[in-house]
Design a protein around this nucleic acid. Structure first.
Length: 551
RNA sequence: GGUGCGGUAGCCAAGUGGCCAGGCAAUGGUUUGCAAAACCAUGAUACGUGGGUUCAAAUCCCAUCCGCACCUCCA
């Protein structure tokens, strides 16, 4: 079956566009590097990584470009606050981004352009827009895009933005803008802004506005009318709408042949919350009065601190309910950051969790509070599943290596089954990258492989078919493809650390138990096991001794 | 108000007209010195609600309720 992909522009499932036969040109909007990324940023990173892997597995060459926006107001703000150069800020968070996405099992794109390296091209692009009458400079040295001039403005988000603009009154937009939706192509440098964030231009020193970099860089690396433009759902408007408006008048052709947006990650602060009945009763009215309470915002921490600073006796029940909600919001805000979340769950589990839902459907981020701190039910489940996948790979490799094979006579029972499951898997991915659907045959392959390992003398051809199928599946989804020992070492080390366990002490208890077992003192051995179980340690007695894991 | 995505069993989540999703949790079993892991078996009148079309609806049509998000810089 040919690959079909949902196109956000037409809202239809279309065959994969192909500007050059056998090749796919893909541009995905990357992060603005002013801070650590959160789980919402993780989703497009993972989704597009799987898209690329699947297309490449199908024999295509994929030109995958994902930019770093390293010139931006927010970066300047962080730099000024910290008294460092903007460049230092962006470098630090580019490194952090790479580390975080690597933990998610994402491979680096084909190209990772940065705004700071494309300033001349951006200036030239702005000049072209002015020359064609789509942009205007103000006396202050700013340049704005004139949205009224672009007839298709709003086509991606399917909104009649120009009518809205007229309704709200052009000329009243302020900032020297002619229309409300006009946006900055070039921003003049302000006196307090650092030297590392200003570049010369025909309109004076300044920097590119947000949006223009993607038009310039996608063109520089992929040219006109490339195949797929992707990104997070919030970028649809205004970012991608503006990219279209900037690119199409200059190049006279659709910017991209298709648009791909993933769904949001939703945070429901009420779900699994341990709010008191009083709070629950007050909540609907409070949310009605203050919609800000619904969503996580940067001001939550400050607001919470203010309320806590007040004399407790002056707090109304409503105030106390707001405090409870704010506490929950702040907690979510912290753990939503991937770097923080990785203290509790493996990046690869985050990947499996993301791939368990179709990329366009909403995905909810769950957090439950326990006596031992926050737990993430869906992510913990994914991590357990990953342990199963890696365990299976270990078992299969051991079975193949140990020569525990039967005669290659008769007919192999499972070769065709494995081949069919792989076909089902590929077919699910071909259908608009249905990773959740693909996890069905994926799981069945692992189940069948496990079963095969439990049989006494499996047919070698079946074993090889299982091995080949697993290679294929894990490489495409980027799950359980690493070294199993490294995975278990990583996960156990993290758990030992979060629970303040002493690995040497555990090793010692395990040794004592082994000695007891060898002396057939099973009572003593079971006591030691119980002690370890209480610590959250699981023992696995095997042919090559006893291994332990934190669970 | 506009735009978009959803509501499927205890939880998560595929599926767009007829055939089994799958995972987690649960229960019983095989195995094991005992466990763990693995495997086997078992579920449940599952499709927000009310109508309609059809031999047949989670799937199509109409109505309606609920949730989430975006609507100038958060992926």
């Amino acid at each position: 079956m040919p690959f079909r992909l949902h196109d956000s522009l037409t809202n239809a499932l279309l065959p994969l566009p192909e500007r050059t036969p056998g090749e796919t040109s893909l541009y995905v909007c990357g992060p603005t590097v002013y801070g650590y990324i959160h789980v919402g940023n993780a989703r497009p990173a993972v989704v597009f990584d799987v898209l690329v892997r699947h297309l490449e597995r199908g024999g295509r060459i994929v030109r995958y470009v994902r930019n770093f926006t390293d010139v931006d107001d927010k970066i300047i703000q962080v730099a000024v606050e910290n008294g460092e150069e903007p460049r230092a800020v962006s470098e630090r968070f580019i490194a952090a981004y790479r580390d975080d996405t690597a933990s998610l099992g994402c491979r680096p794109p084909w190209a990772e352009p940065r705004v700071s390296e494309h300033i001349p091209a951006i200036v030239a692009h702005v000049e072209a827009l002015i020359a064609k009458g789509f942009a205007y400079a103000t006396p202050d040295g700013d340049v704005y895009y004139d949205t009224a001039k672009f007839a298709d403005y709003g086509k991606l988000s399917r909104r009649d933005l120009r009518a809205q603009d007229a309704e709200r009154g052009r000329g009243k937009a302020g900032d020297g803008k002619r229309g409300e939706f006009d946006f900055a192509l070039w921003k003049s440098a302000k006196p307090h802004e650092p030297a590392g964030a200003r570049w010369p231009s025909p309109w004076g020193e300044g920097r590119p506005g947000w949006h223009i970099e993607c038009s310039a860089m996608s063109h520089a690396l992929l040219g006109d009318g490339f195949d797929v433009h992707g990104g997070g759902p919030d970028l649809k408007f205004p970012h991608h709408e503006n990219e279209i408006a900037q690119s199409e008048p200059v190049y006279g052709a659709p910017m991209a042949r298709s648009w791909m947006h993933n769904g949001f990650i939703e945070v429901d602060i009420e779900k699994n919350a341990s709010f008191s009945d009083e709070v629950l009763a007050l909540l609907p009215a409070l949310k009605e009065a203050d919609p800000e309470l619904r969503k996580i915002s940067k001001s939550d921490g400050r607001r919470l601190a203010e309320l806590r600073a007040r004399d407790a006796s002056t707090l109304t029940p409503e105030d106390r309910a707001v405090i409870a909600v704010l506490e929950r919001k702040v907690q979510f805000g912290q753990w939503f950051q991937l770097r923080r979340l990785r203290e509790r769950v493996d990046g690869e589990a985050v990947r499996l969790w993301i791939l368990g839902t179709h990329y366009r459907a909403p995905l909810s981020f769950d957090l439950s509070e326990t006596a031992d701190g926050p737990v993430f039910p869906a992510l913990d489940q994914a991590e357990k599943r990953l342990e199963y996948l890696y365990d299976t790979r270990v078992k299969l490799a051991a079975k193949i290596a140990s020569g525990g094979r039967g005669p290659a006579s008769g007919k192999p029972a499972l070769v065709a089954t494995f081949e069919k499951l792989v076909r089902d898997f590929d077919a699910a991915l071909d259908d608009d990258l249905n990773t959740a659907g693909a996890l069905d045959p994926f799981g069945q392959v692992f189940g069948a492989a496990n079963k095969l390992c439990d049989t006494k003398k499996p047919d070698p051809r079946d074993l090889d078919a299982a091995d080949a199928a697993i290679d294929h599946l894990t490489a495409v989804l980027g799950l359980a493809e690493g070294d199993p020992e490294a995975f278990f070492a990583r996960v156990t080390a993290r758990r030992v650390k979060t629970r303040n366990l002493d690995a040497a002490h555990i090793d010692d208890l395990v040794r004592q138990r082994t000695a007891a077992r060898e002396g057939r003192e099973f009572l003593r051995a079971d006591e030691l096991r119980a002690e370890l179980t209480a610590l959250g340690i699981e023992l696995r007695d095997g042919a090559s001794g006893t291994a332990w894991r934190a669970v």
